[in-house]
Design a protein around this nucleic acid. Structure first.
Lengths: 126, 126
DNA sequence: GTAAACTATGAAGTATACTTTATAGCAAGA
DNA sequence: TCTTGCTATAAAGTATACTTCATAGTTTAC
């Protein structure tokens, strides 16, 4: 699969896909080169990039993703530790999301124009 | 309350608090100046900044927050529209989080070192 | 009253995640 | 064949969210 097809199927700019490769999160596993030097991706790249998109969308960095990729080279204990750490981060993010959502629902039910400020009367988890 | 106390209580650098003010998300409502020109914050600033932190942590931009603040000046219909839009964004983020979490749980249960790549065998929502 | 600590401003610097530009080779259809 | 379009690389540019620096006024503790 050539880069433009990947771009279309995963809905990312070509430049972004090349950038991910440069950053080391698209590896040989998903990518080889044709004789003309064009990139040729495996069909797995689509699912993989969807996971990458999900991770980036919820606040993981490219560096985080690199560390998850590199899990293959380290001990199972270390793997489990890193993965659990990431899951904890996700759960913290989920709490934040729920708080933000409740803040917004609160705004919907309040007469914002007259007396309430953004978030002014909301409770948040510290 | 002076800036250093706010910084300590909300656990943000002083520079960040001044930056938020510069970006227009800390308004007169929470801030006045003393005769010596020092910033003097109301106690409400703490709860407010916690909401700001939550929002930023889950992917909202400072610009998003500004638009939420400015809800006070616009019609209720427009307010409701913007708020519902933000809630939809949060719900999309929640889906992404759940996907990312399942990806990681999948990794925990797989023999990563031997055959599975990061995310390679996971399903994600398109 | 003076040194250390806190406050202020504006401007420049940094990190992350991309995007755009410039230049050039390769390919497919009329 | 020639033009249009896709591919390539390297380097510079952009946006967002801060942080650091340079400089200077203010306050507090001894």
């Amino acid at each position: 699969m050539k880069i433009s097809e990947v771009a279309k199927r995963i809905d990312l700019p070509i430049s972004t896909i090349r950038y991910y490769e440069k950053m080391g999160i698209i590896t040989e596993e998903y990518l080889l080169r044709e004789q003309n030097n064009y990139r040729n991706y495996t069909s797995d790249i689509i699912d993989y990039l969807q996971v990458v998109k999900n991770c980036l969308a919820v606040g993981f960095t490219i560096s985080d993703i690199k560390s998850m990729i590199s899990l293959k080279g380290i001990s199972k204990e270390e793997q489990a530790r890193i993965i659990k750490e990431k899951i904890a981060e996700i759960e913290a993010a989920q709490l934040n999301l729920e708080n933000a959502k409740q803040t917004l629902y609160g705004l919907l039910q309040t007469d914002i124009t007259c007396e309430s400020g953004f978030g002014k009367h909301d409770r948040t988890v510290s």
